[in-house]
Computed example of a mutant assay.
Amino acid sequence: MKQSDATKMVNQAIKVVGKKFDWKCKEGCLFKKNGSLFFVFSAFGQAKKNEIDYTLQYKLYDFDEIFWNIVDLKENAKQPLSFHYFGAWTAPTMCVKKEKYAINEWNESFLIEKYSTIFQDVNYLATQIAQEITTVDENLKYLEALYSELLQRYPGAVVNIYKEKLMTAILKKENSLALEIAEDRIAHNDSGGFLTGSVTFYQQAKEYIKRCNKDERTE
């Protein structure tokens, strides 16, 4: 089995599964807005190892609008729902669950059946999370728990959730806190994973927050 054939087979299976559960599909991924959250289910097959895997990720849907406002890409908000994951620059997602399975055969019917069984549980999990997270505070609490679990598994992980904390503060109109986070990350030479020329995400966030403060004073 060639890797290209395995990938094509998995992608086709995922497309069928997505229709069953009313999730949109693109490039081997399923995505859906559920309540205030945006979920992405990505699947992959490894031909040489005879394995298939999946990852469920999520983020607060409104994070993208804040992110695009900060980096001056407001036109992205007009793009299709898939852009919240496949866009060149989007707010980060956090992994909720990730698993892999050994398989004995590569055929489309088997993969559809296998991923249908997997996705039934994943869809239920996503629905539960969406029902539990209805505020930005609840979202941040859940993010912090996931991040703590990540550090326990991978103590040397270089990822952080400062962007999410900053955007949460902006959504809550806690601009002083948001500015404090931005200035702290600038002091730590944290780019936030986004550069416009030589200007980092946190430098842009600082200027955005200042503009928000100015606008609020003139209202």
Rank of each mutant, 00 (worst) to 15 (best):
K2C: 12
Q3V: 13
S4P: 11
D5N: 05
D5M: 12
A6S: 15
N11V: 07
A13N: 00
A13C: 06
I14D: 06
V17M: 14
K20C: 10
W23T: 15
K24P: 06
K26Q: 14
C29N: 13
F31M: 02
K33W: 03
K33A: 00
G35S: 12
G35Q: 10
L37N: 07
F39Y: 12
V40N: 05
F41M: 05
K49D: 11
N50I: 11
Y54L: 04
L60P: 03
L60C: 00
D62R: 02
D62L: 03
I66H: 01
F67L: 02
D72N: 15
L73Y: 15
L73E: 15
K74C: 08
A77D: 12
K78I: 02
Q79I: 02
P80H: 08
L81F: 00
S82E: 11
H84Y: 01
F86L: 06
G87K: 04
A88P: 10
A88S: 13
T90Q: 03
T90I: 05
A91G: 01
P92Y: 03
M94K: 06
M94H: 09
M94Q: 10
C95N: 10
C95G: 06
V96R: 01
K97T: 08
K98L: 08
E99M: 00
E99K: 09
N107Y: 02
N107F: 03
N107I: 00
E108M: 14
S109F: 06
S109G: 08
L111F: 06
L111P: 00
I112K: 07
I112S: 04
K114V: 06
K114D: 12
Y115N: 05
T117G: 13
T117S: 13
Q120M: 11
D121E: 00
V122Q: 01
Y124C: 09
L125H: 01
L125I: 05
A126L: 07
A130L: 05
A130P: 09
E132Q: 12
I133V: 13
T135W: 02
V136C: 05
D137P: 12
L140E: 00
E144H: 02
E144W: 07
E144R: 09
Y147H: 03
S148H: 06
S148A: 00
L150S: 03
L150Y: 01
Q152G: 05
Y154I: 15
P155G: 05
G156K: 05
A157M: 12
V158P: 04
Y162L: 04
K163T: 09
E164S: 04
K165I: 07
M167A: 07
I170T: 08
K172H: 11
K172W: 10
K173L: 08
E174N: 14
N175Q: 04
D184S: 15
A187D: 01
H188R: 13
D190A: 04
S191G: 06
L195F: 07
T196K: 15
T196L: 14
T196V: 03
G197E: 03
S198M: 10
V199C: 04
F201G: 05
Y202M: 01
Q204K: 10
Q204W: 07
A205T: 01
A205G: 08
A205S: 12
I209L: 08
D215T: 13
E216V: 08
R217A: 11
R217G: 11
E219G: 14
